[in-house]
Design a protein around this nucleic acid. Structure first.
Lengths: 172, 172
DNA sequence: ACAGCCCGTGCATAATTATGCACGATGCAC
DNA sequence: GTGCATCGTGCATAATTATGCACGGGCTGT
């Protein structure tokens, strides 16, 4: 057993959570950044100290410096006295998933190399094109049918990384 | 004569300027704010001191504090290391065609009621969903296969109108 | 076991931005 | 003319944000 597996096991036993939450714990800053986007989208945030406090209420401990780095990484802007989310208009223009994300209904894995997406009928190909155009280096290949897409990755960590990314994109 | 008029007269006699420039002089901050928007739109501005310098080169004398107030008033945002203009186009965020337009390869008509779209393989359904979501009142109904979409309209003028609109959207 | 690499983080503080205060200019009413 | 209100401005500095540095954790290879 690798030492890295132990926190995983402890987390499992204390919280009784499922695999999805354990993955979220491994990628702490990923979860925190998602929370930041949500907080800013839902309320007015005027400065980083305020954001630090709101994050703490949601279980994230981070200092102003980490938050500054997060905001920079996320492309969040400050207009006058409040933070605003990255412009969705420009993002949508370059975001291949903007109009096809809604077609994805489920994400599963098969073994350690295959990720399976279920879509609404007849839309798999469009979603697959968006995935292909993203050129993720973890992805070895994709194949799509009518409502199902298979995405092959090499190592287990690649599959895990891909799954987290897809969850973020499709909100599943 | 009011004492306040004297500097104006002196300015006129010394510079030989015209009414336009006198108006610009009266509304100094209005012109400066327009210049700020132009500068930010044309180049990368990283901090307010830099903007003060560029403004000075264009004939505007203002300190960092005035510029800060201008930017606040103009709704200019700072994202990471640069200033960005206020979002001009929120409409694109709601554009259902943003990511599927590229799938359409041809537009034809059949008779006076049918418009036929050809798409890349497997993507017709996604494009049809975007068309349905637009709720154009000229459209009676749509049906899609793998790479073909039929759009029914009632009168010839409706078909013509639809075709022009689709040409505009898909650039064909 | 170790060393090396990479990444995220907090601390301290440099850099940047915002703002309180006082002032000058302008317009208006008397 | 004066007095008052409003506005924009600069100066000084408070508030906010960004970043250099050191550290710890995780991962990989030997």
């Amino acid at each position: 057993m690798h030492p890295g597996v132990r926190p995983l096991s402890r987390s499992h036993s204390v919280r009784g959570v499922q695999t999805g939450d354990m993955a979220a714990e491994i990628h702490q800053s990923v979860a925190r950044r998602a929370a930041i986007l949500r907080i800013i989208g839902e309320s007015t945030v005027r400065n980083q100290d305020e954001l630090v406090k709101v994050l703490r209420k949601q279980g994230f401990d981070a200092t102003q410096s980490s938050v500054s780095r997060d905001l920079r990484e996320l492309g969040v802007a400050k207009a006058g006295d409040r933070y605003i989310l990255p412009a969705q208009d420009a993002g949508a223009a370059n975001n291949p998933f903007a109009a096809v994300a809604k077609f994805v209904v489920d994400i599963k894995t098969a073994g350690s190399s295959l990720t399976v997406l279920k879509t609404t009928t007849g839309t798999a190909q469009s979603v697959a094109v968006a995935i292909d155009s993203s050129d993720w280096h973890e992805v070895v290949g994709t194949i799509s049918g009518d409502d199902t897409i298979f995405i092959a990755t090499d190592e287990p960590k690649d599959q895990k990384k891909l799954r987290e990314r897809l969850r973020g994109i499709f909100g599943i």
